[in-house]
Structures are given as C-alpha cells and as structure tokens.
Amino acid sequence: MKPLDENAMAARLAQDIPDGAYVNLGIGLPNKVAHFVPEGREVMYHTENGLLGVGPAPATGEEDPELIDASKKFVTMVPGAALFDHPLAFSMMRGNHLSIAVLGAYQVAENGDLANWATLEQSFPPAVGGAMDLVAGVPQIFVLMRHTARDGSPKLLKRCSYPLTGAGVVTRVYTDLCVLEVTPEGFRLVDLAPGNRLEEVQSVTEARILT
C-alpha cells in the first residue's frame, strides 16, 4: 500500500473546505489543514481560546506571548478577526454557527461514533478539551487520522471500544489511504489515495467499505 504523508493527507482534506467556511481545526495533524486550502478561498479559522480569524505562525521574534491557538502555539490574526471569551467561543460551537470541525481520532465506527478523548488507562489521563462541544454543535465533523493504529490494528471499526466523544457525529473520514463518507448504511468510499486498491484498504479496515 502507498500511504500519503501527513502534508498530503491535510492537503486532500483542504480541497473539501469551501470558500467562506468557518472552521475549527483540532490539535495536531488537523492544524496542518490551514496551510493547504486552495488559493482564492477565504476561510475563517476558529480557535476555542477566543479568536475567530486565526492567521499563520508569526516570524521569529515577532511572537505575541499571549496570542496562541488551541494547540498553545503562537499565531497571528487575519484581517476581519475578532477576539472573545470562552462562553462566546463555545456558543459558536454548540450553537451551530461553525461550518466544519476537523478532529483527530483514536477510533471511528461505521455508524459515525467518534472516540478521541480517553483510553481509561491510569497512566494516560483522559483529556476532552472542546471535542464534545464541537461534535454537539458543528454540522460537519471531518476526522483526519492514520488509517490504522501504530501497532497496525484497525481504527475504522464496526463499533468503538474506547469511550465515545459523541454518538453518530462523524460525517467524513480522511486517512492516509482513502476518504470515506459516513452514510446510514456505513462507510462509503469517496476516493482512494493514489496507487492503492480497495481490497488492500479493506484488509486493514474492520468495518465494511461500501462503494
């Protein structure tokens, strides 16, 4: 199989972010998506710590120590940006005002269940952040993740084994091997990463991939 690298995964997802969208990008890999949105589209990025209109990282030496995103990285503000407090940041999420949220995941099930906050191991404290608020109120939940776990075990399952972040909330999954849409019947193939065959991708996927 020919898995995409992380930049290519983010670039594939970025193709599906339309002009004028208000988008929340999760910590880690989802954060890369902003670099790859095609030119000519104006997208407003929301960060839960109180900024709508997140811009690129500042030049070295020009960081404002108090201007950060949800990953705690230094950012800038784009023209048209707005600042606010936590209650308002989460009104935007829960109140259905954002268009798309891009999240990482431990597991996604074919019914759209998402698990990305806890494994219940005592050595690994649970950490939910804003994930449950996003899935409660953002209509399009895109998951961006590796197709399988580090040990090779499948992450696209019939049912999640880890505690859920939300039930039936995922609308699309973007992995290093393919793009899947969550439908009432299960995962439906949108496209394969170049050079891959469906039978191979199915062999590392517990849930059935419909075509």
Partner: peptide
C-alpha cells in the same frame, strides 16, 4: 501526570464549553 498516576489527586474532567458555562 505524576500525581495522577500515583492516585494522589482527584480529577474531574468537564468538557471545555460545559466548564465555561
């Protein structure tokens, strides 16, 4: 993490928006 692993601390996890509200 040290205090949590050792069971020396109680943790209540609250979703961020619920915490704010």
């Amino acid at each position: 993490e040290r205090r949590y692993e050792a069971g020396e601390i109680e943790l209540e996890i609250v979703p961020q928006g619920t915490l704010a509200e």
